[in-house]
Design a protein around this nucleic acid. Structure first.
Length: 887
RNA sequence: GGGCGGCUAGCUCAGUUGGUUAGAGCGUCACAUUGACAUUGUGAAGGUCAGAGGUUCGACUCCUCUGCCGCCCACCA
């Protein structure tokens, strides 16, 4: 191959699209079409991105990590399936479209358009968003099986949702009931507890009595709700109020007629406020519980629009809650009923999607009962227990482990899950009404009307692992790939999604949804801030791909990232990995252009994986093959344990610091020697191929591109009608090379030591220096050095070279000629080194002199320390000799 | 209020059951560099591992406490 064909620098943009197109054309993203006889399945379902817009760096990280696993397992010979899909994201999408339409001047889109037309708008937006997302996944190089693409709101998933709902309803796990729920006045829907965020704020805390004749003072931050009070609750043991318990007071409060009963209830904290709690059954979940226990009536005084209802009394009716609050407080103040007004820190409940302040309201909603006893096999259990058992039993392994605790804690506090929403975009609740009759599932026929509500988006996402594989049908995919192997997602949706998938899967298909959960962190900017449009610190993955390539972008998201920890991202970091991709390119360029002429036999002599035995001829050969074997085994082990970052770092260090910096350099010299040329070339080719394979899951594009050039004749995307099976993506994973006796390659380490010492001397003094360079050598090392004089000369640029064994120590090499420019400098350096060495020797001798240490420490540690100490002492003697000879 | 995590070089972070003189990348500085690569090479400087106790022959690692920083959960009205 001529050099002209290969540009000096790797240009990602010139190759990536063609490579992806070739992968897709091959069909290998689909495990059914993979070559070879594959038995073991490996499956990941892509956490479906919301169709609310475009992908950000967090998505890119997710794609990079999952593609890494999928490609690794595919090369290892598994039936690797990665299922793509998108999420309709109900509220998020609907409110986004609503906002867009309002920005375009439409006042109340839902009212103006009506259900059908409004949904058309949402669907149009969702479709565009979907197309963008799919395009971005391709740009990232994701080897997703597009033939199995799913959407949480498509026909097949709707069947799954309806089936799930029906079964849970039939089993009594889904019920309809009046409850005080979280009402989002902006989104005009209820939301689940998990969709409520708490923001710290300050609030005025008022202490007052309802009326002059009422004997007990209460405290609240929301006086306007008190027009709906039914009772005052006190603790049973509270002596202050005992005499009032059981009495009922009829009174006028801020224009409302109230009938207040004094009740005693354990849930009241006598130490808080006045120790008496005004019970507002309609607008507080806690109060609703108390009211239920005492049979108190519920009166809703706030409407869905966040305004006071007529029953609240004419004083406040029609007003917003804030206006009403001011009116009530003024009313109290005028009458001298207000005893205290103080400022307290208080958490405000905010709707996650719309940012609206939550208004607790009583509503008729659908719920999943998580505490209802159910029978599963022989034993009684509950949905909560199913969720706990899945993780406790080890059937689902959470990484990092600490999140298991968070998971259990969430379940402990879990209450019934409100699954109905009053929005339009989503799966319609599959319940039909006709008069008093109710039917669940398919439409029973004429005259029935369907429930207006839609389901929480997480209800459909909860089915994702099996609904994508064909459930409720008993499909081959479901049997083969479920439970899925790994769920890789962000820790921020552990509750929303991960827990719900466990719930749905263990209940509906009696299997865990996945065996392993790998939680990645959030991608932040270089200062650790969340990326947000308002901060202007958003790094768009597509921009980075355009500028530095998909491979560099992927590496920057994988290396340096540990599970569960946030990752700081910066453009410099991506640029650094672009440099590495280029390094790999240039290593290949060297190998291909210099030995390309002898290409055929070199290629034939080696295979990409399952490396055959070699007859290494030099120390460098033995050393690099041995290191390559170690590294490839270690990388495999690390990837197996999901240590992506460590695996990547190890590979990078080996590729750059060992293969490129040492072996390639040595190879330049070796291959000039007739006897060594062929082996050297073969080894270069062999290891390069192995490295491309090992790197492929990390950097699929550049590795596939180089691979195609190495096999230009059969290049899958450069020629017509070529076989896809020649592609790197389906080559077997290099399992590591087994190398000869082991140990003899250490001679090369000695040579490296000598060369480094010479370089250092040159660096310190600017000229080749003559000095005894202390290197620990065995007799065979010395002969190795004799044999490799040429290599040392060339690599160290030291000439001439003469190797001597020091008579005093038995260690060392002598490089001539001797002439130092700066004796002072040398003296200082030697002195410093000697001092360090002495310090070390003293502390080590101290330890070795400690009987207890020697007795208790592992033998290996002691032996290593002894050896190291001996070496240090010898070096010390050598250095001291140098110092005296200097004077 | 409950829980979790972090604190290691100027910056970003590794450090796998406790075991030699604690590592990498980036940045800084010095030097080098006409053939794979300036998207380069060689080297240097830089850390009492947040602090204090404890366990141990030995602690970045285990235990206790303290201090900052961050996150999650929570129906104290």
């Amino acid at each position: 191959m001529s050099e002209r064909e290969l540009p000096k620098a790797y240009e990602p943009a010139a190759h990536e699209d063609a490579v992806y197109a070739a992968w897709e054309k091959s069909g290998f993203f689909n495990p059914d079409k993979l070559p070879g006889d594959r038995k073991e399945p490996f499956c990941i379902v892509l956490p479906p991105p919301n169709v609310t817009g475009t992908l950000h760096m967090g998505h890119a990280a997710m794609l990079a990590i999952q593609d890494l696993m999928i490609r690794f397992e595919r090369m290892r010979g598994k039936k690797a399936l990665w299922v793509p899909g998108t999420d309709h994201a109900a509220i998020a999408t609907q409110s986004k479209v609503e906002k867009l339409l309002m920005e375009q001047g439409m006042k109340d889109p839902r009212r103006v358009l009506g259900r059908e037309k409004f949904l058309d708008e949402v669907k149009k937006f969702a479709q565009e968003s979907h197309d963008t997302i799919v395009g971005q996944c391709r740009k990232m190089g994701s080897s997703l099986d597009w033939s199995r693409e799913a959407y949480t709101l498509d026909e097949a998933r709707n069947r799954a949702v309806n089936r799930a709902f029906t079964r849970m309803y039939d089993d009594g796990l889904i019920y309809r009931g009046w409850r005080v729920v979280n009402w989002d006045p902006v989104g005009r829907t209820t939301i689940s507890d998990d969709e409520v965020e708490h923001k710290e704020g300050k609030a005025a805390f008022y202490t007052f009595t309802y009326a002059p004749e009422f004997p007990i003072a209460i405290s609240t931050t929301r006086p306007e709700t008190k027009v709906g009070d039914a009772a005052v609750a006190v603790h049973p043991s509270d002596a202050r109020y005992r005499k009032y318990v059981g009495k009922t007071y009829e009174l006028n409060f801020a224009g409302a007629k109230l009938k207040i009963q004094v009740v005693s209830d354990d849930s009241v904290d006598p130490g808080f406020g006045t120790g008496a709690l005004g019970v507002t059954p309609a607008h507080s979940a806690v109060d609703a519980d108390i009211a239920k226990r005492h049979g108190l009536p519920t009166m809703q005084v706030i409407g869905e629009d966040g305004r006071m209802l007529p029953v609240a009394g004419e004083l406040v009716a029609g007003r917003t809650t804030l206006e009403a609050r001011a009116i009530v407080v003024a009313w109290l103040r005028d009458r001298g009923l207000l005893q205290k007004e103080e400022e307290v820190a208080q958490n405000v409940s905010i709707a996650q999607r719309t940012g609206a302040v939550i208004e607790p309201l009583p509503k008729l909603q659908w719920f999943v009962d998580v505490n209802k006893p159910l029978r599963r096999g022989w034993k009684k259990t509950t949905l909560k227990k199913l969720m706990q058992d899945a993780v406790k039993s080890g059937a689902v392994k959470i990484m990092p482990e600490r999140f298991a605790k968070t998971y259990f804690h969430w379940i402990d506090n879990l209450r019934d899950w409100n699954i109905s929403r009053q929005i339009w975009f989503g799966h319609r609740v599959p319940v039909w009404y006709k008069g008093d009759q109710l039917s669940v599932g398919e439409s029973p026929g004429e005259g029935w009307t369907q429930d207006e509500d839609t389901l929480d988006t997480w209800f459909s996402s909860g089915l994702w692992t099996f609904s994508t594989l064909g459930w409720p049908d008993d499909t081959a995919d479901l049997r083969t790939y479920h439970p899925t192997s790994v769920l890789e997602t962000g820790y921020d949706i552990l509750f929303f999604w991960v827990a719900r998938m466990v719930l749905m899967s263990t209940y509906l298909v009696n299997e865990v949804p996945f065996k392993e959960v790998y939680l990645h962190g959030l991608v932040r900017d270089e200062q650790g801030r969340k990326m947000s449009k308002s901060l202007g610190n958003v790094i768009n993955p597509l921009d980075m791909i355009a500028k530095y390539g998909a491979d560099a972008t992927r590496l920057s998201l994988v290396i340096g990232a540990t599970p569960g920890n946030d990752l700081k991202m910066s453009e410099e970091k991506i640029a650094g990995f672009r440099n590495f991709a280029n390094k790999l390119w240039n290593i290949s360029r060297f190998v291909l252009t210099t030995i390309g002429d002898r290409g055929p036999q070199a290629t034939e002599a080696s295979r990409p994986a399952g490396l055959r035995a070699y007859e290494p001829q030099t120390l460098a050969d033995r050393w690099i093959l041995s290191r390559y074997g170690e590294v490839s085994r270690e990388v495999t082990r690390l990837l197996d344990q999901r240590g992506f970052s460590a695996a990547g770092e190890l590979l990078r260090d080996f590729t750059w610091n060992e293969f490129a910096d040492w072996y390639v350099e040595a190879a330049k010299i070796q291959r000039a020697e007739p006897g060594h040329a062929h082996t050297t070339d073969a080894i270069l080719m062999e290891i390069l191929r192995g490295l491309l394979a090992l790197w492929h899951p990390f950097m699929p594009f550049v590795t596939e591109t180089i691979w195609g050039m190495m096999n230009a004749d059969s290049s899958p995307y450069q020629g017509e009608g070529k076989e896809g099976s020649a592609m790197l993506m389906v080559q077997p994973w290099p399992e590591g090379l087994r190398v000869h006796d082991g140990g003899s390659e250490k001679g090369f380490v000695a040579i490296q030591g000598v060369i480094e010492s010479i370089r250092k001397t040159r660096s310190d003094f600017g000229v080749p220096a003559g000095q005894m360079i202390p290197v620990r050598l065995t007799a065979s090392d010395v002969s190795a050095l004799e044999d490799h004089k040429e290599l040392i000369k060339r690599l160290a640029k030291a000439d001439p070279i003469e190797i001597q064994v020091s008579s005093e120590t038995g260690y060392g090499v002598h490089i001539t000629p001797a002439s130092f420019v700066d004796k002072e400098k040398e003296r200082a350096r030697l002195t410093k080194e000697i001092e360090q060495l002495k310090g070390y020797a003293a502390s080590t001798e101290g330890k070795l002199g400690n009987d207890e240490f020697v007795r208790k420490a592992p033998e290996k540690v002691v032996a290593e320390m002894r050896a190291k100490l001996d070496e240090a002492k010898a070096k010390l003697v050598a250095l001291e000799g140098q110092l005296t000879s200097l004077n």
